[in-house]
């Protein structure tokens, strides 16, 4: 097993709060939202598992030989115990009533894109789910223009479907949470604008007061 401190990117002398912050930051970085329908989702899942194990190991060692979680996180409170990133996060494709579509989703889970596409092409009925799955295959291949067109068709056929809308958002260039936190400069500008507006408001309110 790797050095847990190295996994979390903290020094051995880091405080509990620093470790907790590093842990939270890493979990946010590899959050399933950042890897939805991503061909590398399995690697992200492994990464989260490694981070959880490292965090558990550190908290256990710091608490002595006693209970595993003596700090801020209790069993069930950590990401690993909740299981949310293992089974429910990265590959949570909804089940389909159509047996062929279920099989296509299984192929997608296994990253077998050619098999998924061959099976999908044999379907005679091209409904919203067909276009959605076709879009997923294109997205996995990196064919983002084609993926977007298929997702748009699926959304137009069934407007209220959350799964299809989410997929469409992924090819509309929106910022992922991690990118938004670290590299979205215009958001900083927006934040500054808000601060400026608040300061102006404060001046105005002060000016109106006694």
């Amino acid at each position: 097993m790797k050095d847990p401190y190295e996994v979390l990117g903290v020094s051995r002398t880091a405080s509990d709060n620093e470790i907790k912050a590093a842990y939270r930051e890493l979990v946010k970085k590899y959050h399933p939202d950042n890897y939805a329908n991503n061909p590398l989702a399995d690697l992200a899942s492994e990464k989260v598992k490694e981070i959880n194990e490292a965090y558990d190991a550190i908290t256990r060692s710091r608490a002595g030989q006693g209970s595993a979680y003596n700090g801020g996180y209790q069993p069930g409170g950590s990401y690993q115990s909740s299981g949310s990133y293992q089974s429910g996060g990265y590959k949570s494709y909804q089940t389909s009533s159509n047996a062929a579509y279920s099989q296509v989703r299984s192929y997608l889970n296994a990253n077998q894109l050619d098999a998924a596409e061959s099976l999908l092409n044999t379907a005679s009925n091209r409904d919203a789910e067909w276009y959605y799955l076709k879009g997923m295959i294109a997205y996995r291949r990196g064919w983002l223009d084609e993926a977007r067109q298929h997702y748009q068709t699926a959304c137009a056929m069934v407007p209220g479907n959350y799964e299809y809308q989410n997929a469409l958002r992924s090819v509309q260039g929106g910022y992922t949470p991690y990118r938004q936190t670290n590299y979205q400069r215009s958001d900083m500008d927006t934040a500054c604008d808000i601060c400026n507006a608040l300061m102006c408001l404060n001046c105005l309110c002060g000016g109106c007061g006694r």
């Binding site: 991503n38 590398l40 992924s170 090819v171 910022y175 992922t176 990118r179 590299y183």
Partner: peptide, 14 residues
Amino acid sequence: TQLTDSSVNLAGAA
């Protein structure tokens, strides 16, 4: 631009 932004997201995630 949105297509290239999606590429940025995928490259960044990788």
